[in-house]
């Protein structure tokens, strides 16, 4: 994967209090690591070194094991995402209906590859597995907005909604 420039980690008191709360809730539960990582990611948006370190100390799990789990699962990211995360479904139903062309067009338009973030931090691009909206194939999502039944020509319109 291409190298990604990550901004320095910033932490608010509120965020770290929330994280400690989550760690306390799960401490001692069998198989707690993955649920804790999920909640930590929803607090910070991603799982940088500092957050992993805090979880390691809180749950008393070695850093190596935490990084092993974080890097194994695609849902976990150690890089921040853009303000708008564009995710194009590359499930079979969408692929057969041309989502490959759509992702190519977005790459060209934003000048980034899958997994990268634009320099201004506005957009990041992700290729997702099936999101289960196969009836609307091909599908893409921008944060929580879903766009379906797409053609390559729709890409400009959709992206421009998030430009200003």
């Amino acid at each position: 994967m291409a190298e990604i420039k990550a901004p320095a980690f910033k932490d608010t008191a509120e965020q770290s209090a929330k994280l400690q709360e989550v760690i306390a809730k799960f401490k001692g539960t069998e198989g707690a690591l993955i649920p804790v990582l999920h909640e930590a990611q929803s607090i910070y948006g991603y799982l940088p070194y500092e957050v992993q370190k805090a979880i390691s100390e809180g749950l008393d799990v070695p850093m190596a094991e935490i990084y092993g789990v974080v890097s194994f699962y695609t849902q976990f990211s150690i890089y921040p995402k853009g303000t708008y995360n564009v995710a194009v479904c590359l499930g079979t139903a969408c692929y057969v209906k041309g989502s490959g062309d759509i992702i190519d067009k977005i790459k060209e338009k934003l000048g980034i590859e899958v997994g990268q973030c634009t320099d201004d931090g506005r957009f990041s691009l992700e290729a997702t597995r099936c999101i289960g909206a196969c009836g609307l194939a091909p599908v893409l999502t921008v944060n929580d907005d879903v766009y379906g039944r797409l053609t390559v020509d729709d890409v400009d319109d959709i992206l421009s909604k998030y430009m200003d």
Binding site: G31, G68, V69, F72, Y73, T74, Q75, R129
Partner: peptide, 20 residues
């Protein structure tokens, strides 16, 4: 957490236990 292999039964259980 987004790993296809976790649909395999032994992998799924390893994942519930909190591991890769």
């Amino acid at each position: 957490a987004g790993a296809f292999v976790c649909g395999e039964e032994t992998a799924l259980m390893t994942s519930i236990e909190g591991h890769r």
